[in-house]
Amino acid sequence: MDTKSGLHQSEDRLELYALGRLSGPEVEQIEEHLLMCHSCVDRLEGIGAFATAVREDLKAHVDPPRRGWAAWRLPSFALPAVFATALLTLGVFWTGTATRLPPSASLQLTAMRGDMQQVAPARETDLTLTDPPSTGAPFRLEVVDASGAGVWSGVGLAAKIHQRLSPGDYFVRLFSSQGQLLHEYGFHVN
């Protein structure tokens, strides 16, 4: 078969692709290349594994703030004042910024087929199941995100999730006391 020459993708472009940072036309171009270039697919697998693992690690492990020399030269009475100022600033920031989100959102999940229920993002989310099965109590609830990762679990027919849920789909699984999965409900955080 006749052939002509082309160029492999650079490391930088493969990495940006793996991180999802290329524009639409760039994605199209690189994916067409990857479809026929086994070598670049192999390289992308390694690059993607590194980029993803490092990103997750850096997200999970934040370096503590550096203790500079200035902290040691402050007079002792200044520390409480600094602390009080920081608290005040934090309070102003909290009331000015964080309260843009409502403190809590409530959602009643019903066993009916249809569109997934929508809920606005909030600092806490309350979930209540309105139509539990007649048998199987005490029930256990488990809330997972769209990738199946656990978000919350507990006993009963209600969940109070003390964290802000990222936008996306979530699933609530209802288990019987014997661990049998009885129902799964879905909801979407906007």
Binding site: M1, T3, G6, L7, H8, E11, D12, M36
Partner: peptide, 17 residues
């Protein structure tokens, strides 16, 4: 070689295929 792999590879003749 690792960071800028821009050596050529062969693209088939799509029309013929």
């Amino acid at each position: 070689a690792e960071m800028d792999r821009t050596d050529a590879f062969q693209i088939p003749d799509w029309t013929q295929l």
